[in-house]
Design a binder for these strands. Structure first.
Ligand SMILES: [Mn+2]
Ligand SMILES: [Mn+2]
Ligand SMILES: [Zn+2]
Ligand SMILES: [Zn+2]
Lengths: 138, 138
DNA sequence: ATAATAATGAGAAGCTTTTGCATCACTAAC
DNA sequence: GTTAGTGATGCAAAAGCTTCTCATTATTAT
């Protein structure tokens, strides 16, 4: 029940919040822009405002329910935060996204931060390329 | 001589272009937003338009003269491309930026891309944290 | 059910970046 | 050195994308 998740996160269980959370949990498309979320909700007959979508996503991010990414081109997308950190491989042609984690890279990042005297709070690694499907001649 | 670099890149050596390139080469601040570049130029008495700065930076990027980064928060910054790839550690308090390269991380990234069937074109790794100076209590 | 309070939707506003266009400046040819 | 041609520039307007304002509505605790 999404209402419970929201309350645990200290957020009132309003209809727009429940709907956004449900969408992020059930959508085929795991990484979505605010506009995407908005359109999906409109299409499923919800009466929601774009401003609310932005507000809710920002609140979810603050509450740790979702993560926000800034992919190449500067467009920002959201995804449900399911605990396990991961990084991304993005196809620059079709936008396909693959997720991965690499413990050795993670380890090395921590060391680099320490070496530079930083108290690491976050990190992100984006690999851009052309996916198998987009490589075909023609 | 910046005019030569520009011509080699297939760009007319116009005054705004030369000035932007000089600034990127000589500025104390290595990573700059378009607005930064614009203000620096105005302050040094140049008569340049913001639109031109954006146009020139985009052209420089296309020509491989500069790289563009989208740091957390979505703001995009530019830096002179001096051939050697590197990644970034960014202080989320003061904006201080440290650069680094790690061959093992680079190697692993290539493998991950290959494993996922991607033809890697680019990648970026941002480590966010609080720098030494900003860690001091108060 | 009610009252108190917080959240919402719609539109306005704010930023950053891009575009249209008349004018101006490089460049190369004289 | 001039000149002609093309391409670049500055300005203002426009186009995203995101946030804010505010009157209205929904949620929660009583
Ligand atoms: Mn992901
Ligand atoms: Mn750098
Ligand atoms: Zn693809
Ligand atoms: Zn700092």
């Amino acid at each position: 029940m999404e209402s419970q998740d929201l309350k645990k996160a200290g957020l009132k269980a309003t209809l727009p919040r429940v709907r956004v959370l449900q969408l992020l949990e059930n959508s085929e498309q795991r990484h979505m822009s605010a506009e995407d979320v908005y359109k999906f909700l409109l299409d499923s007959g919800e009466d929601v405002g774009l401003a609310t979508v932005y507000r809710v996503l920002t609140q979810f991010e603050a509450a740790g329910l979702v993560s926000r990414h800034h992919f190449e081109g500067g467009l920002s997308v959201f995804e449900l935060n399911e605990g396990r950190h991961h990084d991304h491989v993005v196809c620059v042609k079709c936008g396909k996204i693959e997720e991965f984690t690499d413990d050795i890279i993670e380890e090395r990042q921590r060391n680099i931060a320490k070496l530079k005297g930083f108290d690491m709070t976050d990190h992100c690694l984006y690999i851009y390329g052309i996916c198998h499907g987009c490589q075909k001649p023609r």
